[in-house]
């Protein structure tokens, strides 16, 4: 049942993120993007059909691929985590600079009428 739990978790993370993505305040959007990135990272990770106790750290000698978790989605997600951090930082700066320049934290840079 790990699959169902994880799938529900991904769904809620992405759903909450998408809700926030449509909100008017920049801070809501940055929280939303972070939630979506958790969800998407887990989704990519779930492509490896995860199981417990199969970390892809091999021993010497002949290797049986079936005995280890799929390392490829993991390396993809690892880079995604780091790049996600970088884009979060970038967005945060844009958010703050925009707030400083326009005086508003609305995503359009001005308060709605």
């Amino acid at each position: 049942m790990i699959e169902l739990t994880l799938a529900l978790g991904i769904g809620f993370l992405v759903g909450s993120g998408i809700w926030l993505l449509q909100r008017p305040r920049t801070y809501q959007v940055i929280v939303g993007l972070s939630l979506i990135s958790y969800g998407v990272n887990l989704f990519i990770f779930s492509m490896s059909r995860p199981r417990s106790n199969m970390a892809p750290v091999v021993t010497s000698g002949t290797v049986d691929p079936a005995a280890y978790a799929d390392p490829l989605p993991q390396s993809l997600v690892l880079t995604a985590i780091v790049i996600g951090f970088a884009t979060t930082a970038l967005f945060l700066v844009v958010l703050l600079v925009s707030r400083g320049l326009t005086g508003s934290d609305h995503v359009d840079g001005r308060e709605p009428n």
């Binding site: 699959e3 169902l4 994880l6 799938a7 529900l8 991904i10 769904g11 809620f12 992405v14 759903g15 909450s16 998408i18 809700w19 449509q22 969800g39 887990l42 989704f43 779930s46 492509m47 490896s48 059909r49 995860p50 691929p65 799929d70 390392p71 490829l72």
Partner: peptide, 25 residues
């Protein structure tokens, strides 16, 4: 948001419950 979340749930569940194809891993 609910539709998007549900879609992601269905999609990831469907992937995880199917056997993995032969990859370069």
């Amino acid at each position: 948001a609910a539709v998007a979340g549900l879609g992601m749930t269905l999609l990831s569940y469907a992937v995880m419950t199917r056997p993995s194809p032969d990859t370069i891993s």
